[in-house]
């Protein structure tokens, strides 16, 4: 009897687990590994067929223009990540800190801060591209009406401004996520702790420094790693604001747009063929993997030791 019962349990367990394992493995895990395999192939078509060993990587790391584009995308991506991380963490934290104080309309502020995050990156990118249009965009008109016409720049045409503009637009959109995470972290601080501190005569600044910041440290880690993964695969914003050519002259090229262009475009538009595209995605995987490991080391494993 018990033996039979146990067997039944096993069958339903398998049936319950199988669909998730099947779809997850076949459409997420295997493709990631298989893309790495395809990076060892070359060919003109959609599916690379000719085995070339590590040739694609040799090209990618040593030859013009492949090496130059990759280094360019890497340095752009680092800058992009830096700007987004700074803005989202600093502003996100302070906005969260403010909306957890006793302030009129804090529920409304909380609600609105997440609104842009619900939009698609594509829509937001297109919208800001129109707003920043040098011939009739409203942003330059606002500057003129404020008497700041000397500060008008070719926002999306100059590599010095284009990349930061894209980073700011992305931060604008995803600020809500940071606010939400930090708000959750601050709300989770037990009230007794805060009250005890206030009774002891702690000023709001002291409360911020000694109670709030220490308890939200892990959230800084989560926000940052989410930004990291998102930014090193970011494509939509470049597509919408700078086209797949990452105008001006690859000045806004990120790994995501490099990957798309390399894999899917024709040579005339900067395409490199699918095999090279797979090599680029493998490099991206290595970067994301390294980043996640660093994060785990600093925020997760160390945290567990303290538990």
């Amino acid at each position: 009897m018990p033996g039979k019962k146990k067997k039944e349990v096993k069958l339903f367990m398998v049936l319950f687990l199988l669909p998730a394992i099947f779809i997850y493995t076949l459409f997420l895990l295997i493709p990631i590994l298989d893309s790495m395999r395809l990076s060892l192939y070359s060919g003109q078509g959609l599916i690379p067929t000719e085995f070339v060993g590590f040739d694609n990587y040799v090209k990618l790391f040593t030859q013009f223009p492949f090496k130059d584009r990759m280094i360019n995308a890497f340095s752009n991506n680092i800058k992009f990540f830096f700007i987004v991380t700074l803005i989202q963490n600093i502003f996100g934290f302070f906005i969260a800190f403010f909306v957890t104080r006793k302030i009129i309309g804090k529920g409304f502020f909380r609600k609105i801060s997440f609104l842009p995050t619900t939009l698609s990156v594509l829509v937001v990118g297109f919208l800001f591209k129109l707003i920043l249009n040098p011939a009739w965009g409203i942003f330059d008109k606002i500057l003129v009406s404020l008497g700041l016409e000397n500060f008008i720049l070719p926002w999306l045409g100059n590599p010095l401004t284009a990349l930061p503009v894209l980073a700011i637009v992305v931060s604008w959109q995803f600020m809500g996520e940071s606010v939400l995470f930090y708000t959750a972290g601050i709300d989770a601080i037990p009230e007794e702790v805060t009250e005890a501190a206030l009774i002891d005569g702690a000023s709001p600044l002291q409360e911020l420094w000694y109670i709030i910041i220490p308890s939200i440290l892990p959230i800084i880690g989560i926000v940052t790693i989410l930004i990291f993964i998102g930014d090193f695969t970011q494509f939509d914003i470049v597509y919408a604001m700078s086209t797949t050519q990452a105008n001006p002259a690859f000045g806004t090229d990120l790994f995501g747009s490099l990957f798309y262009r390399a894999a899917f475009s024709t040579p005339v538009r900067g395409g490199w063929g699918m095999g090279m595209g797979a090599a680029v995605s493998t490099v991206m995987f290595a970067i994301v993997f390294t980043g996640v490991m660093v994060w785990l080391y600093f925020f997760k494993l160390k945290g567990q030791k303290n538990d």
């Binding site: 893309s35 993964i229 894999a263």
Partner: peptide, 23 residues
């Protein structure tokens, strides 16, 4: 199995695009 699933949270599926397209 649990870790196997949860690991997927940090794997950007876009990086498997070429293989998924092939599939």
């Amino acid at each position: 199995l649990y870790l196997f699933f949860v690991a997927g949270m940090i794997i950007p599926i876009r990086l498997g695009t070429i293989s998924i397209l092939k599939l």
